[in-house]
Design a protein around this nucleic acid. Structure first.
Length: 298
DNA sequence: AATCCGTGGAC
DNA sequence: TGTCCAAGGAT
Protein backbone atom coordinates (compact mmCIF):
# COMPACT_ATOMS: atom_id res chain seq x y z
CA UNK A 1 0.00 0.00 0.00
CA UNK A 2 1.34 3.45 -0.88
CA UNK A 3 2.57 5.35 2.15
CA UNK A 4 1.50 8.65 0.61
CA UNK A 5 -0.13 10.99 3.07
CA UNK A 6 -3.76 11.33 2.01
CA UNK A 7 -5.48 14.62 2.87
CA UNK A 8 -8.47 14.07 5.09
CA UNK A 9 -10.84 16.07 2.92
CA UNK A 10 -10.35 13.66 0.06
CA UNK A 11 -12.29 11.32 2.26
CA UNK A 12 -14.66 13.74 3.93
CA UNK A 13 -15.48 16.44 1.37
CA UNK A 14 -15.99 14.22 -1.66
CA UNK A 15 -19.17 12.44 -0.55
CA UNK A 16 -20.85 15.70 0.45
CA UNK A 17 -19.92 17.27 -2.86
CA UNK A 18 -21.30 14.24 -4.71
CA UNK A 19 -24.61 14.33 -2.83
CA UNK A 20 -25.17 17.94 -3.78
CA UNK A 21 -23.89 18.09 -7.36
CA UNK A 22 -23.87 14.65 -9.02
CA UNK A 23 -25.47 14.41 -12.44
CA UNK A 24 -28.76 12.60 -12.75
CA UNK A 25 -27.65 9.76 -15.05
CA UNK A 26 -29.97 6.93 -16.12
CA UNK A 27 -27.91 4.15 -14.55
CA UNK A 28 -27.95 5.97 -11.21
CA UNK A 29 -31.73 5.97 -10.95
CA UNK A 30 -33.47 3.36 -8.77
CA UNK A 31 -36.00 2.68 -11.54
CA UNK A 32 -33.18 1.69 -13.86
CA UNK A 33 -31.99 -0.93 -11.40
CA UNK A 34 -35.55 -2.12 -10.76
CA UNK A 35 -36.16 -2.59 -14.46
CA UNK A 36 -32.84 -3.85 -15.79
CA UNK A 37 -30.82 -4.98 -12.76
CA UNK A 38 -27.17 -5.93 -13.04
CA UNK A 39 -27.59 -6.60 -16.76
CA UNK A 40 -28.50 -2.96 -17.26
CA UNK A 41 -25.40 -1.83 -15.39
CA UNK A 42 -23.21 -4.21 -17.36
CA UNK A 43 -24.57 -3.00 -20.70
CA UNK A 44 -24.13 0.63 -19.69
CA UNK A 45 -20.53 -0.02 -18.65
CA UNK A 46 -19.73 -1.67 -21.97
CA UNK A 47 -21.11 1.32 -23.82
CA UNK A 48 -19.21 3.72 -21.58
CA UNK A 49 -15.86 2.14 -22.41
CA UNK A 50 -14.35 5.09 -24.28
CA UNK A 51 -17.66 6.51 -25.46
CA UNK A 52 -18.78 9.75 -23.77
CA UNK A 53 -21.77 9.69 -21.43
CA UNK A 54 -23.86 12.01 -23.59
CA UNK A 55 -23.52 9.70 -26.58
CA UNK A 56 -24.35 6.57 -24.59
CA UNK A 57 -27.58 7.81 -23.03
CA UNK A 58 -29.68 7.91 -26.23
CA UNK A 59 -28.81 4.26 -27.04
CA UNK A 60 -29.10 2.56 -23.69
CA UNK A 61 -32.84 2.32 -23.22
CA UNK A 62 -33.57 1.02 -26.71
CA UNK A 63 -30.88 -1.60 -26.30
CA UNK A 64 -32.23 -2.86 -22.98
CA UNK A 65 -35.84 -2.81 -24.14
CA UNK A 66 -34.85 -4.97 -27.10
CA UNK A 67 -32.64 -7.33 -25.07
CA UNK A 68 -33.75 -7.07 -21.42
CA UNK A 69 -31.79 -10.11 -20.29
CA UNK A 70 -28.47 -11.80 -21.16
CA UNK A 71 -30.36 -14.82 -22.53
CA UNK A 72 -32.41 -12.65 -24.87
CA UNK A 73 -29.29 -11.03 -26.19
CA UNK A 74 -27.48 -14.35 -26.48
CA UNK A 75 -30.14 -15.52 -28.92
CA UNK A 76 -29.63 -12.52 -31.21
CA UNK A 77 -27.28 -12.63 -34.19
CA UNK A 78 -23.99 -10.79 -34.28
CA UNK A 79 -25.37 -8.77 -37.18
CA UNK A 80 -28.28 -7.56 -35.06
CA UNK A 81 -25.90 -6.58 -32.28
CA UNK A 82 -23.51 -4.70 -34.54
CA UNK A 83 -26.47 -3.01 -36.17
CA UNK A 84 -27.95 -1.91 -32.86
CA UNK A 85 -24.56 -0.67 -31.70
CA UNK A 86 -24.87 1.89 -34.49
CA UNK A 87 -22.29 4.67 -34.21
CA UNK A 88 -21.18 4.15 -30.62
CA UNK A 89 -17.68 3.43 -31.86
CA UNK A 90 -15.23 0.58 -31.32
CA UNK A 91 -17.74 -1.98 -32.61
CA UNK A 92 -15.69 -4.87 -31.28
CA UNK A 93 -17.28 -3.98 -27.96
CA UNK A 94 -20.67 -4.96 -29.38
CA UNK A 95 -19.26 -8.35 -30.29
CA UNK A 96 -17.67 -8.74 -26.87
CA UNK A 97 -20.90 -7.76 -25.14
CA UNK A 98 -22.76 -10.33 -27.22
CA UNK A 99 -20.15 -12.95 -26.33
CA UNK A 100 -20.40 -12.03 -22.66
CA UNK A 101 -24.17 -12.49 -22.85
CA UNK A 102 -23.64 -15.99 -24.23
CA UNK A 103 -21.11 -16.77 -21.50
CA UNK A 104 -23.44 -15.50 -18.79
CA UNK A 105 -26.25 -17.61 -20.20
CA UNK A 106 -24.11 -20.73 -20.51
CA UNK A 107 -21.96 -20.51 -17.41
CA UNK A 108 -24.05 -18.53 -14.94
CA UNK A 109 -27.61 -19.55 -15.69
CA UNK A 110 -28.38 -16.21 -17.27
CA UNK A 111 -27.52 -14.25 -14.12
CA UNK A 112 -24.79 -11.63 -14.28
CA UNK A 113 -22.13 -12.92 -11.87
CA UNK A 114 -21.35 -10.95 -8.75
CA UNK A 115 -17.75 -11.95 -8.05
CA UNK A 116 -14.94 -9.87 -9.52
CA UNK A 117 -13.08 -12.96 -10.73
CA UNK A 118 -16.15 -14.34 -12.48
CA UNK A 119 -16.76 -10.96 -14.08
CA UNK A 120 -13.13 -10.67 -15.18
CA UNK A 121 -13.46 -14.00 -16.97
CA UNK A 122 -16.16 -12.62 -19.28
CA UNK A 123 -15.35 -11.29 -22.75
CA UNK A 124 -14.68 -7.58 -22.91
CA UNK A 125 -14.53 -7.12 -19.15
CA UNK A 126 -11.34 -5.87 -17.53
CA UNK A 127 -10.27 -4.41 -14.20
CA UNK A 128 -12.52 -1.40 -14.43
CA UNK A 129 -15.73 -2.96 -15.71
CA UNK A 130 -15.58 -5.99 -13.42
CA UNK A 131 -15.40 -3.83 -10.32
CA UNK A 132 -17.90 -1.31 -11.64
CA UNK A 133 -20.50 -4.07 -12.04
CA UNK A 134 -19.73 -5.60 -8.64
CA UNK A 135 -20.02 -2.20 -6.96
CA UNK A 136 -22.69 -0.33 -8.91
CA UNK A 137 -24.94 -3.29 -9.66
CA UNK A 138 -24.47 -5.39 -6.54
CA UNK A 139 -23.33 -2.82 -4.01
CA UNK A 140 -20.22 -4.72 -2.98
CA UNK A 141 -17.13 -3.05 -1.58
CA UNK A 142 -14.26 -2.85 -4.06
CA UNK A 143 -12.06 -0.06 -5.37
CA UNK A 144 -13.23 1.10 -8.82
CA UNK A 145 -10.61 3.02 -10.76
CA UNK A 146 -11.36 4.45 -14.18
CA UNK A 147 -9.44 7.14 -16.04
CA UNK A 148 -11.26 9.88 -14.11
CA UNK A 149 -10.44 8.48 -10.70
CA UNK A 150 -6.88 7.83 -11.77
CA UNK A 151 -6.49 11.47 -12.76
CA UNK A 152 -8.03 12.72 -9.51
CA UNK A 153 -5.63 10.59 -7.48
CA UNK A 154 -2.66 11.62 -9.60
CA UNK A 155 -3.38 15.28 -8.99
CA UNK A 156 -4.81 15.46 -5.49
CA UNK A 157 -2.49 12.91 -3.93
CA UNK A 158 0.60 12.67 -6.12
CA UNK A 159 0.67 16.25 -7.44
CA UNK A 160 1.04 15.20 -11.06
CA UNK A 161 -0.85 16.83 -13.91
CA UNK A 162 -1.84 13.63 -15.66
CA UNK A 163 -1.98 10.03 -14.55
CA UNK A 164 0.73 7.68 -15.68
CA UNK A 165 0.03 4.21 -16.94
CA UNK A 166 -2.73 2.44 -15.01
CA UNK A 167 -1.37 0.26 -12.27
CA UNK A 168 -2.36 -1.88 -9.36
CA UNK A 169 -1.10 0.89 -7.10
CA UNK A 170 -4.12 2.95 -8.12
CA UNK A 171 -6.40 0.16 -6.97
CA UNK A 172 -4.46 -0.16 -3.72
CA UNK A 173 -4.60 3.56 -3.08
CA UNK A 174 -8.31 3.71 -3.82
CA UNK A 175 -8.89 0.72 -1.57
CA UNK A 176 -7.11 2.52 1.26
CA UNK A 177 -9.40 5.53 0.86
CA UNK A 178 -12.72 3.66 0.78
CA UNK A 179 -15.03 4.21 3.74
CA UNK A 180 -15.71 1.09 5.79
CA UNK A 181 -19.44 1.30 5.24
CA UNK A 182 -20.43 -0.61 2.11
CA UNK A 183 -22.91 1.91 0.76
CA UNK A 184 -20.58 4.78 1.51
CA UNK A 185 -17.78 2.96 -0.29
CA UNK A 186 -19.89 2.56 -3.41
CA UNK A 187 -20.77 6.23 -3.35
CA UNK A 188 -17.14 7.18 -2.80
CA UNK A 189 -16.16 5.28 -5.95
CA UNK A 190 -18.87 7.07 -7.92
CA UNK A 191 -17.89 10.42 -6.43
CA UNK A 192 -14.25 10.14 -7.46
CA UNK A 193 -15.30 9.29 -11.02
CA UNK A 194 -17.81 12.12 -11.08
CA UNK A 195 -15.24 14.64 -9.86
CA UNK A 196 -12.82 13.61 -12.59
CA UNK A 197 -15.55 13.75 -15.23
CA UNK A 198 -16.98 17.15 -14.36
CA UNK A 199 -14.40 19.18 -12.38
CA UNK A 200 -10.96 17.60 -12.39
CA UNK A 201 -11.02 17.22 -16.15
CA UNK A 202 -8.07 16.42 -18.33
CA UNK A 203 -7.92 19.66 -20.28
CA UNK A 204 -9.30 22.59 -18.30
CA UNK A 205 -9.82 21.57 -14.68
CA UNK A 206 -12.22 23.82 -12.78
CA UNK A 207 -10.28 23.94 -9.54
CA UNK A 208 -12.39 26.83 -8.24
CA UNK A 209 -15.29 24.38 -7.97
CA UNK A 210 -13.32 21.50 -6.50
CA UNK A 211 -14.15 20.24 -3.02
CA UNK A 212 -10.56 19.03 -2.69
CA UNK A 213 -8.94 22.35 -3.62
CA UNK A 214 -7.86 22.95 -0.03
CA UNK A 215 -5.58 19.96 0.02
CA UNK A 216 -4.82 19.13 -3.62
CA UNK A 217 -1.11 18.50 -4.04
CA UNK A 218 -1.16 19.56 -7.68
CA UNK A 219 -3.03 22.81 -7.03
CA UNK A 220 -0.79 23.63 -4.07
CA UNK A 221 2.22 23.25 -6.35
CA UNK A 222 0.73 25.76 -8.78
CA UNK A 223 -0.71 23.24 -11.24
CA UNK A 224 2.69 22.44 -12.75
CA UNK A 225 2.98 20.75 -16.10
CA UNK A 226 4.66 17.67 -14.77
CA UNK A 227 5.57 16.51 -18.23
CA UNK A 228 3.92 13.13 -17.89
CA UNK A 229 1.21 13.68 -20.41
CA UNK A 230 -0.88 10.94 -21.86
CA UNK A 231 0.43 9.44 -25.07
CA UNK A 232 -1.12 11.13 -28.05
CA UNK A 233 -3.80 9.28 -29.91
CA UNK A 234 -2.80 8.35 -33.44
CA UNK A 235 -4.23 10.60 -36.14
CA UNK A 236 -7.62 9.41 -37.34
CA UNK A 237 -7.69 11.04 -40.75
CA UNK A 238 -6.23 8.60 -43.24
CA UNK A 239 -5.89 5.85 -40.66
CA UNK A 240 -6.74 2.17 -40.89
CA UNK A 241 -9.41 2.78 -38.26
CA UNK A 242 -11.08 5.32 -40.48
CA UNK A 243 -11.11 2.80 -43.33
CA UNK A 244 -12.59 0.10 -41.12
CA UNK A 245 -15.19 2.52 -39.87
CA UNK A 246 -16.20 3.46 -43.40
CA UNK A 247 -16.51 -0.16 -44.50
CA UNK A 248 -18.55 -1.16 -41.48
CA UNK A 249 -20.82 1.87 -41.81
CA UNK A 250 -21.54 0.78 -45.37
CA UNK A 251 -22.37 -2.77 -44.26
CA UNK A 252 -24.66 -1.42 -41.55
CA UNK A 253 -26.43 0.89 -43.94
CA UNK A 254 -27.16 -1.82 -46.50
CA UNK A 255 -27.76 -4.69 -44.08
CA UNK A 256 -29.28 -7.23 -44.50
CA UNK A 257 -28.30 -6.84 -48.14
CA UNK A 258 -24.78 -8.19 -48.91
CA UNK A 259 -22.43 -5.72 -50.58
CA UNK A 260 -20.61 -6.93 -53.70
CA UNK A 261 -16.88 -6.68 -53.01
CA UNK A 262 -16.45 -4.43 -56.03
CA UNK A 263 -18.95 -2.03 -54.46
CA UNK A 264 -17.11 -1.68 -51.19
CA UNK A 265 -15.66 1.85 -51.19
CA UNK A 266 -14.44 1.69 -54.83
CA UNK A 267 -13.20 5.28 -54.59
CA UNK A 268 -11.30 4.93 -51.33
CA UNK A 269 -7.99 6.84 -51.73
CA UNK A 270 -5.86 3.84 -50.76
CA UNK A 271 -7.14 0.57 -52.21
CA UNK A 272 -4.61 -1.49 -50.30
CA UNK A 273 -5.69 0.06 -47.05
CA UNK A 274 -9.33 -0.60 -47.91
CA UNK A 275 -8.61 -4.25 -48.61
CA UNK A 276 -6.67 -4.62 -45.39
CA UNK A 277 -9.61 -3.05 -43.57
CA UNK A 278 -11.96 -5.62 -45.07
CA UNK A 279 -9.65 -8.48 -44.10
CA UNK A 280 -9.22 -7.23 -40.56
CA UNK A 281 -12.95 -6.78 -40.10
CA UNK A 282 -13.45 -10.38 -41.19
CA UNK A 283 -10.65 -11.52 -38.87
CA UNK A 284 -12.34 -9.68 -36.00
CA UNK A 285 -15.71 -11.27 -36.73
CA UNK A 286 -17.28 -7.94 -37.62
CA UNK A 287 -17.87 -8.94 -41.23
CA UNK A 288 -18.22 -12.06 -43.34
CA UNK A 289 -17.57 -12.73 -47.01
CA UNK A 290 -18.86 -15.43 -49.33
CA UNK A 291 -16.28 -14.79 -52.03
CA UNK A 292 -18.21 -12.21 -53.98
CA UNK A 293 -19.91 -10.11 -51.32
CA UNK A 294 -19.41 -8.71 -47.85
CA UNK A 295 -22.01 -8.59 -45.08
CA UNK A 296 -22.49 -8.34 -41.34
CA UNK A 297 -21.84 -11.61 -39.45
CA UNK A 298 -24.89 -13.90 -39.45
C1' DA B 1 4.47 -2.55 -22.46
C1' DA B 2 3.06 -0.30 -26.47
C1' DT B 3 -0.37 -0.23 -29.93
C1' DC B 4 -4.49 -0.89 -31.86
C1' DC B 5 -9.34 -0.21 -32.00
C1' DG B 6 -14.54 4.48 -33.89
C1' DT B 7 -16.94 8.44 -33.50
C1' DG B 8 -18.00 13.03 -32.72
C1' DG B 9 -18.03 17.25 -29.67
C1' DA B 10 -15.28 21.03 -27.74
C1' DC B 11 -11.81 24.29 -28.12
C1' DT C 1 -8.86 23.76 -38.89
C1' DG C 2 -6.63 20.49 -36.47
C1' DT C 3 -5.85 18.61 -32.03
C1' DC C 4 -7.49 16.62 -27.97
C1' DC C 5 -9.99 13.31 -25.65
C1' DA C 6 -13.76 10.36 -23.92
C1' DA C 7 -16.87 5.35 -17.24
C1' DG C 8 -11.20 0.43 -21.45
C1' DG C 9 -9.81 -3.99 -23.12
C1' DA C 10 -7.22 -7.22 -25.87
C1' DT C 11 -3.07 -8.55 -27.78
Amino acid sequence: MPDTQVPSDVVSALPEWYRSTARDLPWRRPEFHDEFGAWGVLVSEFMLQQTPVVRVIPHLDAWLKRWPTPARMASASAADVVQQWANLGYPRRALWLHRAAVEITDRHGGVVPRGVDDLLALSGIGDYTARAVAVFAYGDRHPVVDTNTRRVLARAVEGRAQPGAPSRRDLDLMASLLPDDIDAAAMFNAAAMELGATVCTSRSPRCELCPLAGSCAWLAAGRPDTGDERRRQAAYEGSDRQARGAVLRLLRTLDPEPVPLAAVLPDWPDAGQRDRAIDSLIADGLAEADGSALFLPR
